[in-house]
Amino acid sequence: MARRQEAKGWVFVGPFLTVFALTFLAPIGYAIYLSLYRDQAFFGGSVFVGLDNYAEVLRDAKFWESAGRVLAFLVVQVPVMLGLALLAALAIDSARLRGAGFFRIALFLPYAVPGVVAVLMWGFLYGDTFGLAADLNKLLGTDAVQPLSGSWMLPSIANIVTWEFVGYNMLIFYSALRTVPGELYEAAAIDGAGAIRTIRAIKLPALRGAIVIATIFSIIGSFQLFNEPNILRTLAPNVITTYYTPNMYAYNLSFAGQQFNYSATVAIVMGVFTAIIAYVVQLRGSREAL
């Protein structure tokens, strides 16, 4: 009887495990396999090199430049984006904001816009010879507004990502706030707690888990930065290089340089870095919750 029940369980779990193995484990395993080999320039074929590709990545100045760029992007953009999302969620949940439903939908709408369309739209706004930036320069009689220049490019990309994902993170925070029991608010009101005190004593503690999850998602998204710089590269090819981000570096190594083994190595190294940082954030968030 117990074996029959176990067999029935595998019938339900089996399809998921099959899809998981084919779409997740198999690509990772193949990437690891590729990273252990290197193509021979003169003799053709590939030869097993062990961890030599990983050692080369760790010495690669282009890799570290791109990794440092996305790390700087993460340190600045993620707190700004999550801070705005938190303020929006608290405002909508406060019951003092008129048209809260409208603002909730309006903030979430950019997330519904396809990423490529969003970048193209902002790219037309950023253009030096067309769009809003060019119009502002003509109006002011200066070239001060240059979103696609070297010093402005990373903030310009951060602005696009923030516009896209503030509503998504706001919805995560707002959903967490809706699970807070009403009795806690009633008790706080009886004790004479004001709005600020209620936020600090009730709402922020209730949001701790959601903040950790949103932070982990944002960290992963930052290290996966690809669409925005890759599309904007057509407008600013001298600013955005082929190794502007690690994902762009791996992509161009593979599809433009035909260096599949080294590209797989770059992807594996970035995956490990991302997993470590995300785990540290999760571990720290869990300890603070305790």
Rank of each mutant, 00 (worst) to 15 (best):
A176W: 15
L177Q: 11
T179R: 12
V180D: 00
P181M: 03
P181G: 00
G182L: 09
E183L: 12
E183N: 09
E183G: 10
Y185V: 09
Y185W: 13
E186Y: 11
A187W: 07
A188T: 10
A188R: 05
I190Q: 12
D191A: 04
A193F: 05
A193D: 03
I196V: 12
R197H: 08
R200D: 04
I202Y: 00
K203G: 00
L204M: 12
L204Q: 03
L204R: 07
A206M: 07
G209L: 06
I211C: 11
V212A: 12
V212S: 10
I213F: 11
A214D: 04
T215A: 15
T215R: 09
S218K: 08
I219S: 09
I219E: 09
I219G: 08
I219L: 14
I219K: 13
G221E: 11
S222H: 03
S222F: 04
F223K: 02
Q224D: 09
L225V: 09
F226C: 01
N227E: 14
N230V: 14
N230M: 15
I231T: 01
R233K: 15
A236W: 00
A236N: 00
N238V: 13
N238G: 15
T241P: 04
Y243A: 15
Y244F: 15
Y244L: 07
Y244P: 02
T245A: 06
P246H: 14
N247M: 11
N247Q: 15
M248W: 06
A250P: 06
A250Q: 11
